[in-house]
Amino acid sequence: MTTPPYPAVTDAELAVLRAQLGRPARGVLGIAARCVCGNPTVVATAPRLDDGSPFPTFYYLTHPAATAAMSTLEAEHVMPELAGLLDDADVADAYRAAHTSYLADRAAYGEVDEIAGISAGGMPTRVKCLHALAGHALAAGPGVNPIGDAALARSTWSPSRCVCADPGAARGEAA
């Protein structure tokens, strides 16, 4: 886990991000979480992109196997199950706190009126995007975002096992 402010992103990291995303990464402020091999897994993204667009997704999941795993969970309709966890008052309180933490992390890089109060992934009351929630959980560390943690626990991908050199894993295929 890296917390703001982030070290400068290197050209080598930008090249890895380009390969992961299949396009140049936009508005990268730093690497917020890494694979055990050191490759980027989550980037911290500027709240306003260079073209002036507001961008609420501060923690952006980039690792192909992680994004594939979250897509699989969404396709398997796991989101309603994870949303049901919010019926527990303690989980709901922790999720609201995760929202507040997310906003504070992004605010360290500027306030953007168009996205004021908007975090990502449906926080603080819904479960909308597992990619965003997992990205936040990976960047913030275990115990901060309970729904992101639960999504990671349900997925076939693990941040503790490198699959960067495995093309099948990048597509979400089991090893």
Rank of each mutant, 00 (worst) to 15 (best):
A15P: 00
A174G: 08
G122Y: 11
A15G: 05
T72C: 07
G172L: 11
L138W: 01
T41A: 15
P5C: 12
P40H: 04
M70A: 11
M79E: 10
A69L: 12
A169I: 08
A32E: 12
V43S: 11
R126M: 13
C35G: 05
A175V: 09
M123A: 02
A94E: 11
M1H: 13
R96H: 09
L21D: 03
A75I: 02
D88S: 06
R126A: 14
G148A: 08
S160A: 15
M79H: 02
L130R: 02
P54V: 08
E81K: 09
D87N: 10
A153C: 06
G52H: 02
W157T: 01
T3L: 15
P5G: 11
G27C: 12
C164G: 02
A120L: 15
A169F: 08
D93L: 13
Y59I: 02
S155H: 05
G143D: 04
G143K: 00
C35T: 03
A92C: 09
V144F: 00
P80F: 05
N39E: 11
P56T: 02
I115C: 12
E114Q: 14
G122R: 06
Y60I: 04
D50N: 08
P7I: 02
G135A: 10
G30N: 07
S119A: 15
A65W: 01
C37I: 10
T67M: 15
A44P: 06
A169D: 05
V42R: 11
C164P: 06
R171F: 12
D149K: 10
D88V: 04
H77W: 05
G30K: 08
R154V: 06
W157S: 04
A175Y: 09
A169C: 10
P80Y: 04
L49G: 00
E111V: 03
A92H: 09
S101V: 04
A19P: 00
A15D: 15
D149L: 13
Y102E: 00
S155Y: 01
L130A: 05
I115L: 13
E114N: 07
S53M: 12
Y60E: 05
A134T: 10
G122Q: 13
M123V: 01
T156C: 10
H131A: 15
R96V: 06
A12W: 07
I147M: 01
S71G: 13
L61T: 04
A69P: 06
A140M: 07
A174M: 14
A89L: 14
A68R: 05
R23C: 06
P64G: 01
